[in-house]
Each structure stands twice: as C-alpha cells, then as structure tokens.
C-alpha cells in the first residue's frame, strides 16, 4: 500500500481550480521550461483528450503558459500568464489534437528556442497534481519530477553512464532511480537519474563538460 505524507493529504499548495487540470498542467509547462533552460522563443501546446475539451474553463492554458514562463504551481502570476507572456514577446498558441492512445490529460509542447533549435516534450497530468513526462524529442522515457531529476542527453557510447555515476559519487549524491533510453544504437541517448538529495550548479556543469555528454538538465518540482 502506498504511504502518504501529511502534505499529500493537506496539500499541495496550488493555484486553483483543479489539481489535475491546473496544478499538473503548470508542472508540465515548467518541466519543458527547465528542459529548454528557460530559453523559449515560440511554443505550441497541443492538447489531447480532457485537456482539449475543458482547458478554457479550468485555466489549463494559463497554467501551461505559466509553467513555460518558469512559474511553479503555487505562483499567483499564473492567472496573468497570457499578459506576461505577451510582454516578454513570447509567441504562443494552443491547439486541440488527437495524440493517440495517451492519458486523457496529455499535452505535447513544441518549443522553438532562441537559436531556432527545436524541443518537443510529451507529458500527462495523472491526478492530484502529479505528472509524468513520457517523451522528449521523440525518445520515449518516463519520469515524474517528484525527486530531483537529472536529464542527460549523450552519445550512445560505452562508458558514459559510468562517468556520470562516478561524478555523482564524488559529490556525495545518492541515486534513487536510474534509466537509460535511446533512439537507436550508437545515436542519441538519454539518462534519467532521480536522486535523494539536491544537485548544485557545480555538479551540473561538471556533467555538462564531460566527454560524450551533449547536455544536462535538472528538474525539481515542489
């Protein structure tokens, strides 16, 4: 049986009206913001299922956009995210889409960064404000953001995972869960590492500068 904390029951602290359609949506946008390292020039949200049907009444659109602006689920600026995005010159749009056999509350976030590099994130709001990211740039994977999560894109070559885990050891960071995903052998690959303790900038820089590592991101959701 799942064990619950006080704060799972009396919580989360959030902007209403719905934990799944508002708080969860904001978290999905926030993860995409983190993966883009805050650099978002254009964004298209493709809403699927219940998200597509009810997003206006639940403020799902405002919450997703708030997340892309870097707001967390309890940030009162979410309500004004359309205005704030326009002031920043962010180009954004919402579309209803059929994304196939996905959870009813799923969104595909297509981002164009400042340097015109594209980023695509697919994720679902699975209830109670909890989320699941299921795809980044076409690579199927899975993480929830409940733990401090390192997302590392790297070349699929021998010894890369070993280097990363030993760096984590040097910084005294314990790995709770670790998964490795790839497109095809020898090409683009991802490591998802969920840790017990927080991860500082030095550690992240160290990983980014390691041979065969393309990029590294840290996602932590309150």
């Amino acid at each position: 049986m799942q064990d619950f904390s006080i704060f799972d029951i009396v919580g989360p602290n959030m902007i209403g009206p719905s934990s799944s359609h508002t708080a969860g949506a904001c978290k999905l946008g926030y993860v995409a913001y983190k993966l883009a390292r805050g650099d978002v020039k254009e964004v298209v949200f493709r809403l699927h299922g219940s998200f597509a049907k009810t997003y206006k009444g639940h403020g799902t659109d405002k919450a997703l956009l708030g997340g892309i602006l870097g707001f967390e689920a309890d940030d009162e600026r979410i309500r004004n995210s359309f205005q704030l995005a326009k002031e920043k010159g962010l180009i954004f749009r919402f579309e209803e889409a059929d994304l196939g056999e996905e959870h009813p509350n799923t969104v595909r976030i297509d981002i164009v960064k400042g340097n015109d590099v594209k980023l695509t994130v697919l994720g679902s709001s699975v209830g109670g404000g909890n989320i699941k990211i299921t795809e980044i740039d076409g690579v199927e994977l899975e993480f929830t953001g409940e733990y401090p999560t390192l997302i590392i894109s790297h070349n699929d070559t021998p010894g890369v995972t070993g280097k990363v885990t030993s760096i984590l050891g040097q910084y005294d960071v314990n790995i709770a869960f670790m998964q490795v995903y790839r497109d095809s052998k020898g090409k683009k690959a991802f490591m998802i590492i969920e840790t017990d303790s927080s991860i500082d900038t030095d550690l992240l820089t160290h990983i980014r500068e390691t041979d065969q590592i393309v990029n590294a991101f840290l996602v932590t959701i309150k």
């Binding site: 919580g11 959030m14 902007i15 009206p17 979410i78 309500r79 404000g129």
Partner: peptide
C-alpha cells in the same frame, strides 16, 4: 471561490473540497 478564480489554496484533500478544512 478563490480556487475557482485561479487564486492560491491548499488542496485538502482536493482542490474541489479545499474550503471545508
């Protein structure tokens, strides 16, 4: 009403029942 107006609340246990506690 605050919840429905996209204000800040504490889900207890859910957002839809956040007024009672």
């Amino acid at each position: 009403e605050v919840n429905a107006a996209m204000g800040k609340i504490v889900a207890a246990p859910t957002a839809g029942s956040s007024g009672i506690l």
